[in-house]
Simulated assay, not measured.
Amino acid sequence: MGLDDITKKAKAFLNDNRVKDALTSEQAEEMSDKVLGATADAANKVTGGKYEEQIEGARTSADDKIGTDDKPPAT
């Protein structure tokens, strides 16, 4: 199986409506919010909160790209 075959299979997988639904489900949104929130919390802890504003900006930017809604997670 060549790279072209793998690429075609990956595209077909991601274009499957069931996969799209799973990736944009409320459960996926909740999980991505939890992961991003925990990562931001850990970064703030390591930096002593010194870069809290930048970390929150990065978390929001990532959430906008992978999430299905715009609200930040409850931390």
Rank of each mutant, 00 (worst) to 15 (best):
G2C: 07
G2F: 01
L3I: 00
D5N: 10
I6E: 03
I6M: 07
T7C: 02
T7K: 07
K8V: 11
K8W: 04
K9S: 10
A10C: 06
K11W: 02
F13P: 01
N15K: 06
D16L: 12
N17H: 07
V19G: 11
V19I: 15
K20L: 07
K20S: 06
T24S: 09
T24Y: 00
S25H: 04
S25E: 06
S25G: 06
E26S: 14
E29G: 04
E30C: 01
D33G: 03
K34H: 14
K34R: 15
V35Q: 06
V35N: 04
L36K: 05
L36P: 06
L36M: 06
A38Q: 13
T39R: 05
A40N: 07
D41C: 03
D41W: 12
A42P: 00
A42F: 09
N44R: 14
K45M: 02
V46Q: 01
V46F: 03
G48L: 09
G48Y: 08
G48N: 08
G49F: 14
K50F: 01
K50C: 00
Y51K: 10
E52A: 15
E52R: 15
E52I: 10
E52L: 05
Q54P: 01
I55Y: 08
I55R: 04
E56S: 12
E56A: 14
G57Q: 11
A58D: 08
R59C: 03
T60D: 08
S61L: 12
S61I: 03
S61G: 04
D63Q: 14
D63N: 07
D63G: 04
D63A: 13
D64W: 01
K65L: 14
K65A: 15
I66V: 15
G67Q: 08
D69G: 12
D69M: 03
D70Q: 13
K71H: 08
P73E: 07
P73S: 08
A74I: 10
T75E: 11
